[in-house]
Nucleic acid binder design. Sequence first.
DNA 1: GTATGTGAACTATTTCACAGCT
DNA 2: AGCTGTGAAATAGTTCACATAC
Lengths: 209, 209
Amino acid sequence: MVVTKIPEVCGMRLSTYLRVLKELAKEKVETISSGALASKINSNPAQVRRDLAYFGQFGRPGIGYSVKKLKVAITKILGLDRQWPCALVGAGNLGSALFAYGGFYKEGFEIKAVFDNDPAKIGKGWGCCEIEDAKRISTIVKQRKIEIGIVAVPAQAAQEVADRLTGSGVKAILNFAPIKLTVPKGMKLRNVDLSIELENLAYFLSKSV
Amino acid sequence: MVVTKIPEVCGMRLSTYLRVLKELAKEKVETISSGALASKINSNPAQVRRDLAYFGQFGRPGIGYSVKKLKVAITKILGLDRQWPCALVGAGNLGSALFAYGGFYKEGFEIKAVFDNDPAKIGKGWGCCEIEDAKRISTIVKQRKIEIGIVAVPAQAAQEVADRLTGSGVKAILNFAPIKLTVPKGMKLRNVDLSIELENLAYFLSKSV
DNA sequence: GTATGTGAACTATTTCACAGCT
DNA sequence: AGCTGTGAAATAGTTCACATAC
């Protein structure tokens, strides 16, 4: 196939395919067609086939896709065939929720350090981690070869945290602070903004009246 | 202007514009150009002008946009000029974080009820709310005229919760459970999936190697 | 018959570029 | 001069439809 630009959203969809495939694997389903896969999520057969075709030829005409093989293939495409050492900054409510949320660990995202700047929290044991002083981000990130930073601090502290993370070699940041972070070029940044999600609902509700 | 279809992502961008405008209003800035606004977020002047033009003519050639007027206009477009009664289902870690996160209330999203199915939690006071039995969702949602449901329960409980919410007149759902919810047509659904966000980072990191 | 992979058609969205207003 | 609003062009992404493989 000719080299084609892969749409930005494709990665996101691969994640959802993978989730379905894992479910199917558990149920011992052996093969699945693009149509059947599409109907399990909000999609259509052509979209599924196209998305997969960007990365190779995984299916067999007349048969469909081998659940097991496709699962392995997508896991690899998404880079989930390895561990990703993460640091969580912010041990407040949101930080706790993220830490407790088991979903990360399962996919290879291992929280190797937790930081906060509240003296009352520093030193407390937290699962396997001990909460450490945010001042020590640089040292520890380098030491533990952390690659992804999760920013769960208030807006006004977020940029400084991001600077420390990027300055210590983190390659990507998942930002929960409701602020636009400035990061060096080449750094991957994703924002999850809870207010904006709700506002978006309000927008659609208002429109449809 | 000719009636044009408004891109899906436009609402999301309006939210970010609004955030900047609020900041500017605080700083007593009176007007701003599309270029200056664009440079404050990751955008460009043409995009900003186009987004605003979908909804009317808010700017003045040679001058720019009145910060105050544009703020009011976008607030209205996004449906944030009113209160949105919300129900939070799930009083676990994530639920707590969402409840504690003040950002909602500020924008008119008022959490009018909190539900859980854990007997140890039911009855406990939680800020102004009392945690109520998830069995009572229907009654209370109707009673309090709740319009938006926030689902912060484990995946296996999410569909049932969603069914109860939609069955009691909720018009939109913000879903944090890592599962594809099925909702009646016309219902607005947004998903925030923490694992998928992280997976997406991993995907981009893997690609760029 | 069934289902893939993929050019080609189509649709959506962004960006250019400029007439016209302040 | 500076900046908006908007046709038109360019780019991105989705869906069709069919040759081909099982």
